[in-house]
Design a protein around this nucleic acid. Structure first.
Lengths: 292, 292
DNA sequence: CTGCGGTGATACCGGCTCGGTATGACGGCC
DNA sequence: GGCCGTCATACCGAGCCGGTATCACCGCAG
């Protein structure tokens, strides 16, 4: 009497996201009445009202919001479980590593090299690199499409993952080559903020929403690169990302920007030998300890 | 065709733990044939053999082991979801804080005081302290019986939780008052290990198993305290735990033991206002920064 | 070798739940 | 005031779940 079925959670998430029974039912590929009934059942079982059915529309209650968060996590977990199980059964042990496209070039290269060198020919675990945009690594890890990911503190949401610190570095300001500030040898955050003609680009937050502000909204690095080259914006990125800069870009160290730590992250309860091996390799990389 | 139901996962976990269909069925309160069929269905759906049915006995395949881990996490998550949802609906916003019985007395006291002072009378979120043994906090957090927990790095398994560092401290050796080493002002790990008549007590690991060793197996602090007082064992604990020492105990600082950081931990995806508030309070505690 | 006990798998059957269709109650809007 | 759109209710058929009975297979004791 206490056990939430994933079917119910799927239904509830659909309704909670659409805030509309008929649309949610359509999305689920079922009719509206069974959906209504399923939600009622769920509410009765929990003894809690999850949705406030006001005339004209449905609203989440506080408890509903809590369950929505929980349910999403569970459904991701279930999808991940299926994927990981299937992958564990396939003979070719392949490890999927998710990383932000364009970031951490050199670190990734060194990690892959070290991994190849370490495992050698025996039990060769192939690593497949999965390039994704902004905050996608977290989702990839959560739903099992990736086994490990390179992520950056404090930018990425690391909650729920195990991590191993790999590299801590300064941030730099990236400016168009012609800009007055580009001639400086170092800058502060205040310097950048004080230039009204060069608003700093805005990244989406973890929920995909952009903070309000003057700068352009950025989706990927190539877009950013172009906008900087055009002299329309500037950006604050970590030092190692210099590798993708254009000749018309200039990177200037920022003295007071928070440091960025690139970490290797994996699903907390993963006990996979392959993941453990890669983590060990990565840890070794840090100990032998070249800084970029 | 892709969607794991929690019922199936419950069934699978039972079989995987018992390695015996009939016993598992009994534990689940159903008959054996439906259970067999459910597992077959699950295997067919995943396209993976999870169990190797050898004559006389069942064994987990690699994929089965993976699914077992995943399934446990999902089931804990589902139980947590139900509990948290119900709690969110109850009007009395109560926060359950889990902590190791006997550890972090003063820190906990300060945290509670600060919390009371901060929220004041308005929206008073009551905190219920849940004392638990060894590694129980993680389970409590995972299955939703607790909202936050005081845990210690590197002892506790923090994987999967968000954390806020509260206090880093040295460890001390606790010895019976009469022991020769008790007169020293500081010790090293080697000093302790070199005393054969006082084997260091052993705590259970995260899976509840004890590492082999000469020392007695410890379940809780009162048991430990008594054994030390009797001169049967010694222990290495963090400095703040001195508060529960008896008069017949002596605590000696250890110069080379790893530092212990007490952290406030909570479920990664928790967006509860109450939890967020307590975390902010705790962070403030650290900033104002008295060290014990 | 042969019955016995114990394993999981199969066959079949009844009941409950799920999903579909039809319809109702209720409020907003032209 | 009709019309539309919302979610809830009523009813019905099919499929799935769980139970009982039984089978196939193996180890073991006599």
């Amino acid at each position: 009497m206490d056990t939430l079925e994933t079917r119910e959670l799927r239904y509830f998430v659909a309704v909670a996201e659409e805030l509309h029974f008929s649309r949610a039912a359509e999305r689920l590929g079922i009719a509206q009445p069974p959906l209504s009934r399923a939600i009622q059942q769920l509410e009765r079982r929990l003894g809690v009202t999850l949705l406030e059915r006001d005339r004209r529309g449905v609203a989440l209650t506080g408890a509903g919001q809590v369950l929505l968060d929980e349910a999403r996590a569970i459904l991701d977990g279930a999808a991940a479980a299926a994927r990981r199980t299937r992958r564990a059964a396939s003979t070719t042990t392949k490890l999927v590593l998710a990383t932000k496209a364009g970031a951490n070039h050199e670190l990734l290269q060194r990690l892959l090299d070290a991994h190849t060198a370490e495992v050698g020919a025996v039990g060769a675990v192939e690593i497949e690199v999965l390039l994704c945009g902004m905050g996608d690594q977290a989702r990839m890890l959560r739903d099992g499409r990736a086994d490990v990911a390179l992520m950056q503190r404090p930018f990425d949401a690391l909650a729920g993952f195990d991590t191993e610190d790999l590299l801590t570095e300064q941030q730099v300001a990236v400016l168009p080559a012609g800009h007055p500030l580009a001639a400086r040898t170092s800058l502060t955050m205040a310097d950048i903020a004080a230039v009204p003609d060069l608003p700093v680009a805005r990244w989406p937050r973890q929920d995909g929403i952009y903070e309000p502000g003057p700068g352009p909204e950025i989706h990927d690095l190539s877009q950013l690169a172009q906008l900087i080259a055009l002299g329309h914006t500037s950006a604050v990125i970590c030092a190692s990302s210099r590798s993708w800069l254009w000749s018309s870009h200039v990177a200037v160290p920022l003295t007071d920007a928070p440091h960025v730590t690139t970490v290797l992250a994996w699903a907390a309860h993963s006990r996979s030998r392959a993941v453990a091996g890669l983590v060990r390799t990565a840890a070794g990389l840090v100990r032998t300890g070249a800084r970029l």
